[in-house]
C-alpha cells in the first residue's frame, strides 16, 4: 500500500537567520528527527516543500539549501500579514518541532545545465531557490560540470539583499562573476545602483551555450525578459520559477494550475518557451 502523502516528516528548527532590515524575511534551518528521512527527502535544486505547523497549516516554500548540504534543509520565508503559517513560523523559537512534506515539483534543469554557461538573475526575496542553485553549482564536486557562472542579484536597498555573507564571499571568488545592485544610492553601498533589467543590459551576459535561470517579482521579470531576448537568450534555455497558492502540492487539490499545467507537479520551473504556451493566468 502507498504511504499517506499528507503526513509530514518530523523536523526541528535548528537555526534562524534574519535576512533583511525589515525583519520579515528569515531563513530556517531544519533538522530531520530521523536521519533516514533526510535520505528519503531526496531533492533537486529548484524543488519546494510544504512546511507544516500543526494547528496552523502548511505553506509551500522553495528549498533554499543545496542537496549537497546533507545534514539539514533550509527555507527562506517571508512573513505576510495575511499568512497564518508564515507568521507562526516567524514567531517560532529554536528547537520548535514542525514538519515538512516533499520534495515537490520539477526543479531546475540540472542535467541540461551540464557543460553550459550558467546565468542566474534574481531580484529581492525571490532569490531563495537560486541561492540553492549557486551553492550547489559552486560545490567542489559540481563546479567543474558547468562552464562560466554569472550571477546578477538586486534588491530595493542594501538591507533587503538576502544571504549577504554568502554573496559577499561569492563576490570575491574567481569562479563566479557576481554583480549586486540596489535600486537607489544608499549610504555605505559600494556596489552597483540601478534596476535589475538595466544592470542586465549593462553586464551583457553572453547567451552563447548558456542556460539562464531567473526569479524575481513580476515587474522585474516584465522588464528583464525583453533584455534577455535582446541579448539573444533563447526562450527554451531561459527558466523561471512560479509561485502559486497551493495546498496538497501533489496535483490533487486543483488550485495551482495555469491552463492545463499544474505548478506543483509540472512546475514550478518552466522555460520561457513553455510559459509562452500558457495562458497569462498567474
Amino acid at each position: 500500500m502507498e504511504t499517506n502523502p499528507y503526513i509530514p516528516y518530523p523536523v526541528t528548527i535548528d537555526r534562524v537567520v534574519v535576512e533583511n532590515e525589515a525583519r520579515d524575511i528569515k531563513t530556517f534551518r531544519l533538522i530531520f528527527h530521523n536521519a533516514q528521512d533526510r535520505k528519503g527527502f531526496d531533492f533537486k535544486v529548484g524543488q519546494f516543500a510544504e512546511l507544516s505547523l500543526l494547528g496552523f497549516g502548511e505553506s509551500p516554500i522553495g528549498i533554499a539549501s543545496s542537496p549537497l548540504d546533507r545534514d539539514y534543509v533550509e527555507f527562506t520565508v517571508k512573513r505576510y500579514p495575511a499568512g497564518v503559517v508564515t507568521n507562526e513560523l516567524h514567531n517560532a523559537e529554536l528547537g520548535r518541532p514542525m514538519g515538512i512534506r516533499g520534495p515537490m515539483g520539477n526543479g531546475y534543469p540540472i542535467e541540461k545545465m551540464k557543460g553550459k554557461n550558467i546565468v542566474i538573475i534574481s531580484g529581492g526575496f525571490a532569490v531563495t531557490t537560486l541561492r540553492a542553485a549557486i551553492r550547489y553549482l559552486l560545490h567542489p564536486d559540481i563546479r567543474s560540470s558547468v562552464k562560466d557562472i554569472t550571477v546578477i542579484y538586486g534588491a530595493r536597498t542594501p538591507g533587503e539583499l538576502c544571504y549577504k555573507e554568502e554573496f559577499t564571499d561569492w563576490s570575491k571568488r574567481k569562479d563566479v562573476a557576481v554583480t549586486l545592485t540596489v535600486d537607489n544610492e544608499a549610504q555605505g553601498w559600494r556596489g552597483r545602483v540601478g534596476f535589475v533589467p538595466t544592470v542586465v543590459a549593462d553586464v551583457k551576459p553572453s547567451p552563447r551555450d548558456a542556460i539562464c535561470l531567473i526569479c524575481g517579482p513580476p515587474v522585474m521579470l516584465k522588464y528583464t525578459i525583453p533584455e534577455l531576448t535582446k541579448l539573444g537568450f533563447k526562450p527554451e534555455d531561459t527558466y523561471l520559477s512560479f509561485e502559486m497558492r497551493m495546498k496538497c502540492g501533489i496535483g490533487k487539490c486543483g488550485r495551482c494550475n495555469i491552463g492545463p499545467k499544474y505548478v506543483c507537479i509540472d512546475g514550478p520551473v518552466f522555460s520561457l518557451a513553455e510559459v509562452a504556451d500558457m495562458p497569462a493566468e498567474y
Binding site: Y6, L54, G55, F56, G57, E58, K247, C248, K252, C253, G254, R255
Partner: peptide
C-alpha cells in the same frame, strides 16, 4: 478540489481535507 484545514481543540487537533 479541496482545501486542507486545521481543526484544533486544545493540544489535540486534526488536519482535515474539506471540499473547496
Amino acid at each position: 478540489c479541496f482545501d486542507i484545514q486545521e481543526e484544533v481543540m486544545g493540544q489535540d487537533g486534526a488536519r482535515v481535507r474539506v471540499w473547496d
